[in-house]
Nucleic acid binder design. Structure first.
Lengths: 142, 142
DNA sequence: TACGCTGTAATGTCAATGGTTACATGCCGT
DNA sequence: ACGGCATGTAACCATTGACATTACAGCGTA
């Protein structure tokens, strides 16, 4: 399975806020236009980003703004805000390995630390990239 | 979304082959017993591992064996064998960003290299762990 | 108060996972 | 060469998550 497009959508949203936020009001319809995704999907993602404290969304008047300095928001923050996996675990384990089998009884002891190592490697790289980096590259291509 | 349990199942399978292969014949039913997963699911995974050249499966007589030295099989090999994602991409991108929008038109230029960087970090760690490591830790817990 | 936008519920479609039954095919021992 | 055991698949089902879509209540400002 792949990581859901909500993650790339969220980043797209930040790129839009940063690029157009000064001229346009960033509404869910505006973002739906840029991403070519349904406005309700956008609103749900905006809600997740808001709950994570990454953006402010104005009720009534409308429009979204970034809640922190760009350098203080990493891709991992966005990933966690948007990817709702139980326990934040990247790997899905088969549920009931047989406790009567020596391997089944110990498979978690054997594997868990290795899986966490892999997940950490990915999260470390997610942490290393911030919206500040995104902004620089966005300006480069515009 | 999480990475499917086929990955942890595949590793469980290798642990069983390695641990019991000398005494028992490793059939799909045997593995179904240890993993507590349906035999047909196991057979499908065995088929994927076989197609990747990682194991041999004996038709008729039954039983599975490892096809290479343990040190020559990495977690990444298993991951690729078992996780059938198009292009092997970890991140799912929203399909049709609006080409009329400066951000929508360039979002791939901006993001793709970053996403690949993250994926590579994970794959590097997957490569670093081999079945030889698995064997050592399995013996430690048995 | 009217308008524009957000928040959210309800519903639908689609794809992937995992389970289950069934059966043809292939190998071996007797 | 036949019977038995195991694999390889097909077919079908239930469940889940993603994403789309419609609808509408709630909020804030002009």
């Amino acid at each position: 399975m792949q990581i859901s497009s909500r993650f790339t959508l969220a980043i797209h949203i930040f790129a839009c806020i940063d690029t157009f936020g000064r001229e346009h009001k960033i509404t869910s319809d505006f973002l739906a236009g840029s991403t070519n995704v349904n406005p309700v999907i956008i609103r749900n993602i905006l809600g997740q980003l808001k709950n994570a404290g990454l953006i402010n969304v104005a009720r009534g008047t409308g429009g979204s703004t970034v809640a922190k300095p760009l350098g203080a928001i990493s891709f991992l923050d966005i990933y966690h805000a948007v990817e709702c996996v139980e326990d934040g675990k990247l790997f899905h384990f088969h549920e009931n390995p047989n406790a009567d089998c020596p391997v089944g009884r110990n498979i978690h002891h054997i594997l868990d630390s290795k899986l966490i190592r892999i997940q950490h490697a990915m999260e470390k790289e997610l942490t290393a990239i911030t919206l500040e980096d995104l902004k620089k590259d966005t300006e480069k291509y515009l």
